[in-house]
């Protein structure tokens, strides 16, 4: 019976959550080929609790000229002309009773890849870290960051 439980559990977590996005944006292409830094688009990471996504305007900054015929870019330009923003599917989600602050982790020099994985190798973003409380607390203890409940739950 334990084996059955383990099998069910393993099968669920083994395949990383890699949802389909409204536009097939490839992080790998943008990072490897163009050598963009995380903070260039996710500018909130060092300044705010949320890392944020770049406004559509920022994508258009390049894609006004770059790869206009690419199907993803075509969809992007269509949304831009229609005046609509894009509704991405959130991959690395925490429950609502957890308050995660990106700026605190950026200041503590936690690398983006620690929680987000090797994004430079991802076409579609996948959730590769367990993001469970035990996993967070372990890292906090290892790095002598506060493990007081009020750090994240208030």
């Amino acid at each position: 019976m334990v084996a059955i439980l383990a099998a069910i559990g393993w099968s669920k977590t083994g395949s990383a959550f890699t949802p389909e996005q409204p536009i097939d944006f490839s992080h790998r292409d943008h990072i490897r080929s163009d050598r963009l830094e995380c903070a260039l688009c996710h500018s909130g990471a060092g300044r705010s609790a949320v890392a944020g996504l770049p406004p559509v305007e920022r994508c258009m900054g390049c894609h006004r000229f770059v790869l206009p015929a690419n199907p993803g870019v075509t969809m992007l330009r269509r949304e831009w002309e229609a005046g609509k923003t894009i509704r991405w599917v959130k991959v690395n989600t925490l429950p609502r009773f957890v308050r995660f602050n990106h700026q605190a982790h950026a200041l503590a020099q936690v690398e983006c890849r620690t929680c987000h994985g090797d994004v430079a190798a991802m076409n579609r973003i996948a959730r590769v870290a367990p993001l469970t409380m035990g996993w967070c607390v372990q890292c906090h203890r290892d790095r002598h960051a506060p493990d007081d409940c009020l750090t994240c739950h208030y």
Partner: peptide
């Protein structure tokens, strides 16, 4: 349910207002 992911959406600005950092 532990492994199931909630499908929340991330909605960026269309054009970011001046001097506004999301969440700050």
């Amino acid at each position: 349910s532990c492994a199931q992911q909630s499908s929340e959406q991330l909605i960026p600005y269309f054009v970011s207002p001046d001097a506004v950092v999301a969440g700050a």
